[in-house]
Computed example of a mutant assay.
Amino acid sequence: MAHAVYLGLGTNLGDKEHNLRIAIDRIGEKVGAVVRRSSFLVTEPWGFCSDNTFVNAVIMAETQLSPIEVLHATQQIERDMGRTMKSVGGEYHDRVIDIDILLYDDIILETEELTIPHPLMYERDFVMTPLREIMAKKE
């Protein structure tokens, strides 16, 4: 049975739209078929100061992977694309790509490694705007 996983993507370094397209392609290869994709949204940095604007998007993929397997796959994609530092303790940095698990089916999960739904998504317009866009799309 396929599970619906919603992923938030963001980038503020390099060719941003290209970064998102590459990440989406790799998610399709490593996580599962990308069924929906939001528009790309240009936003200001959130939680830190940077001269670089972000380009954000949300996608929905159908996956056979468990939530933890999705996390590990997306973290590997981030590393493969050149992301060297994860945000820790509310300290954010410029990044080539950031992939967050927003929702996975309708589960609620809270472990040291992963929390679903994403605990900060409701505070972030750059997540909620594209998420609403793709949730409104018909199958």
Rank of each mutant, 00 (worst) to 15 (best):
F48H: 04
D80R: 04
S39T: 09
V5S: 06
D94V: 02
R37F: 01
I101R: 03
E78N: 03
V88Q: 13
E110C: 11
R37T: 10
R37V: 13
V70N: 00
E113L: 14
G14P: 09
E123R: 14
T43H: 08
P117F: 09
H3G: 03
M121C: 09
H18M: 09
V127E: 07
L65Y: 04
E69H: 07
T74E: 01
E62T: 04
F126Y: 14
P67M: 01
R79F: 00
A136G: 08
E123I: 04
T11W: 06
I99Q: 00
V55I: 15
V88L: 14
L131N: 02
E123A: 12
I99S: 00
K138N: 11
I27Q: 03
T115D: 10
G47D: 06
T115W: 01
D105V: 13
G28C: 10
I27N: 00
P130N: 07
E44F: 03
W46I: 12
E113C: 03
D125P: 06
T53F: 04
I24H: 05
N56M: 05
G32S: 08
V58R: 00
K86N: 11
R124K: 13
I99N: 00
P117S: 12
M135F: 02
L41K: 05
D125L: 05
I22S: 05
E29S: 14
L9G: 03
F54H: 06
